[in-house]
Computed example of a mutant assay.
Amino acid sequence: MNWDQIKGNWKQLKGKAQKEWGKLTDDDFRMIEGEQTQLIGRVQERYGYTREQAEKAVADWHDRNQ
């Protein structure tokens, strides 16, 4: 599944993302709206990850949810 598909199916995938990143708020998820860069930025901010760590975490989540 590519990011265009994730964006299109965000309402369904949001639950999986919420389970993965419990520190993200409902407002965070509304702002993300399936955008990869937004998700990376929010994960980086909430978890104190480096950009690379956040990118890897999001990529791993993406790979598991294809």
Rank of each mutant, 00 (worst) to 15 (best):
A17C: 07
D4M: 08
G34Y: 06
K19S: 13
Q12N: 14
R30V: 11
W21Q: 14
Q12Y: 14
F29L: 03
E33T: 08
W3D: 00
G15M: 13
T50H: 05
D60T: 05
G22S: 13
V58Q: 02
L24S: 05
L24E: 07
G15W: 10
T37N: 10
R42C: 08
M31Q: 10
E35F: 14
W3H: 00
I40M: 03
Q36E: 14
R42V: 07
R42P: 04
K19Y: 08
Y47C: 12
D60A: 03
W10G: 01
D60G: 01
W21K: 14
D4C: 07
I6T: 06
Q18C: 09
D4R: 03
D26I: 00
D26K: 01
E35M: 09
A57Q: 07
Q12A: 14
Q38S: 14
Y49H: 11
K14G: 06
Q66F: 10
Q18K: 15
K16N: 09
G41A: 09
M31K: 09
G48Q: 06
G8E: 12
Q38W: 10
G34I: 06
E20I: 07
W10H: 06
A17Q: 02
G48R: 05
H62K: 05
D26Y: 00
Q36H: 12
D26P: 04
R30I: 09
R64W: 13
Q36T: 05
T50V: 07
Q5A: 15
R51F: 01
M1W: 13
K14L: 08
R51M: 13
N2T: 09
D63K: 09
K23I: 08
E35Y: 15
T37P: 04
K23T: 09
E33R: 13
A17P: 00
R51L: 15
D60Y: 10
N2R: 08
Q53W: 06
Q36L: 06
T37R: 09
A17M: 06
W61M: 01
L39N: 00
